[in-house]
C-alpha cells in the first residue's frame, strides 16, 4: 500500500488552521469524518487513540514532518489524511523546527505489524526534499494529490 492509495483529494487539507499538534489531529480527523472515512460517532474515540500515542512522544521526525499514527478497531481499512500548514505547526519535534507537513495514519486494530512498512515508506517519501518542496508549492489540494500520486509509486532512490 502506498500514500496515493491511502489518500484522495478530499482527505488532503492544503491550508491547515491548526497551530499545535493537538489541533492538527482534530482537524485532520474532522477531515476524515467529512470524507466519510470515519463515522461521526467514532470521532472522539479516534482522536483519543491518536492523542494517546502522541502523548508518549511527538511524532515529529524532523525536517518539518509530523506523522501522527495509531491503530483502532473503529476502522476496517487503513485510512489517512494529509495536511499542509503555511505558518508552521508547533509540534514539539526534537529538532525544534515547526512542522509544515502532517500525515495522519490510522491502521485497523492488530494490523500495525502488517502496515509498519507503509508507515516507513511514507516517512521515507516525505524525507525527500524535492517531494516536500513540490508539496509546499502546490496551489491546492488536488495538485498536491497529483504530486503524491506521481511520487508515491516510485521508490525513493537508493542513497549513494
Amino acid at each position: 500500500m502506498n500514500l496515493a492509495e491511502i489518500l484522495q483529494a478530499d482527505t488532503i487539507v492544503s491550508d491547515l488552521a491548526a497551530s499545535d499538534r493537538w489541533q492538527v489531529i482534530d482537524e485532520l480527523i474532522d477531515c476524515l469524518v467529512a470524507a466519510g472515512k470515519i463515522k461521526l460517532e467514532h470521532r472522539d474515540a479516534v482522536v483519543a487513540v491518536v492523542r494517546k500515542r502522541e502523548t508518549s512522544m511527538s511524532t515529529g521526525i524532523g525536517f518539518g514532518i509530523g506523522i501522527p499514527h495509531a491503530s483502532t478497531d473503529l476502522i476496517d481499512d487503513v485510512v489517512g489524511a494529509f495536511g499542509r500548514s503555511r505558518k508552521g505547526i508547533q509540534f514539539d519535534a526534537l529538532d525544534n523546527q515547526p512542522v509544515t507537513l502532517v500525515m495522519l495514519f490510522l491502521v485497523p486494530q492488530g494490523q500495525f505489524q502488517k502496515h509498519l512498512h507503509t508507515l516507513a515508506d511514507i516517512a521515507k517519501l516525505l524525507h525527500r526534499k524535492e517531494f516536500r518542496q513540490a508539496l509546499e508549492q502546490a496551489p491546492d489540494a488536488s495538485t498536491m494529490y497529483g504530486i503524491i500520486r506521481n511520487n508515491a509509486t516510485e521508490k525513493p532512490p537508493r542513497p549513494v
Partner: peptide, 14 residues
Amino acid sequence: KPAMVPKAIEFPFR
C-alpha cells in the same frame, strides 16, 4: 547547532 539533527528517519521515544 540543534541538539538533535535527525540521522535517519526515526520516530523519537522516551
